[in-house]
């Protein structure tokens, strides 16, 4: 064993350029076997023929992609993007102030960050079920409002776009708060004092100093919310029902009850395409900003 180790180290010392690769190896291997290879399979499936009992049959077709021209599927795709974008914007608007407040709360910082992470201790599934109990006709919200005499009939919340949106924001808000908090936390307070002496009122200090310097956190948070929101299926399934189906539900259905693996694979790649486009457009616009600001 010692011999082997020595030989390995000797080999590494002779090939310094391979040292970085050698530490990357375990993670890279894992991603290759469990992510890249299955992804390759799915890509191939998406062009094959459907087998009605599940699986695929040989052949080549682009009909599974062509189906997205169908208004039915187009509508699902558009709805998914709208929900994911809406969820990102809502999380940003609500999460930024939270992150800002935490970053300025001195000795309470760590406790507050802990509270933001706390929901992760419970399974996402359980938390989404809990929202059903809040929102259903005999749920906490409706019974409270009726008890206070504010409404006489329960408000129908489940199965509405608002319910799906509420569930998505609830689930992904911490992913927005944490990166923004970490970039605000690094902000040197003397920069704000410098801006203040230079005549900047609170609003100017925020938009000219705080916001630009926290942009890395905003970008990271937005991507961390937008991408999983785009692929989510649990929230729309539980809180939205059949009317509010998202593309994640479509993929899930195609692989399970509908037994149309090629179409499910194609839908997955459509989602991936949207993600790549969005990320690319986002980073591109950031670069333009940076140039304009210089």
């Amino acid at each position: 064993m010692m011999e082997l180790r020595r030989a390995w180290l000797r080999w590494l010392s002779r090939h310094p350029s391979l040292r970085a690769w050698s530490v990357m190896f375990p993670g890279a291997w894992w991603l290759l076997v469990f992510f890249m290879v299955p992804l390759g399979f799915m890509f191939a499936y998406s062009f094959m023929e459907r087998n009605v009992y599940g699986g695929v049959e040989a052949g080549f077709t682009i009909e599974h992609y062509a189906r997205f021209a169908d208004p039915l599927y187009m509508k699902i795709l558009v709805r998914t993007v709208v929900y994911a974008l809406g969820c990102t914007v809502a999380s940003l608007l609500m999460g930024y102030p939270v992150a800002y407040a935490i970053s300025r709360s001195g000795p309470w910082k760590n406790l507050l960050v802990f509270l933001v992470i706390l929901p992760f201790w419970t399974s996402f599934l359980v938390r989404t079920f809990a929202m059903i109990f809040l929102m259903r006709d005999t749920g906490l919200i409706n019974t409270t409002l009726m008890g206070m005499g504010l409404i006489t009939e329960p408000i129908e919340m489940l199965g509405t776009p608002a319910a799906v949106m509420a569930g998505l924001v609830y689930g992904f808000l911490p992913f927005m708060v944490l990166p923004i908090y970490s970039s605000l936390e690094k902000l040197d307070p003397s920069l704000l004092e410098a801006a203040e002496v230079l005549g900047a009122k609170p609003a100017a200090r925020f938009f000219r100093v705080v916001l630009p310097l926290s942009m890395p956190g905003v970008v990271a948070g937005s991507l961390l919310v937008f991408i999983p929101a785009l692929g989510s299926f649990l929230t729309s399934d539980l809180l939205g029902g059949a009317k509010e189906i998202m593309i994640g539900n479509l993929v899930q259905n195609q692989f399970t009850s509908a037994r149309n693996w090629p179409f499910g694979s194609a839908a997955s790649f459509v989602v991936m395409g949207v993600v790549l486009l969005a990320v690319f457009a986002y980073l591109r616009s950031r670069d333009d900003d940076a140039l304009a600001g210089a």
Partner: peptide, 22 residues
């Protein structure tokens, strides 16, 4: 009076230059 109402100028110990601006 807030600092921005005092019309003073100040040089800070760590310079406090805005890193995102030229």
């Amino acid at each position: 009076r807030r600092p921005y109402e005092r019309r003073l100028a100040m040089v800070f110990q760590n310079y406090a230059l805005f890193p995102h601006l030229s």
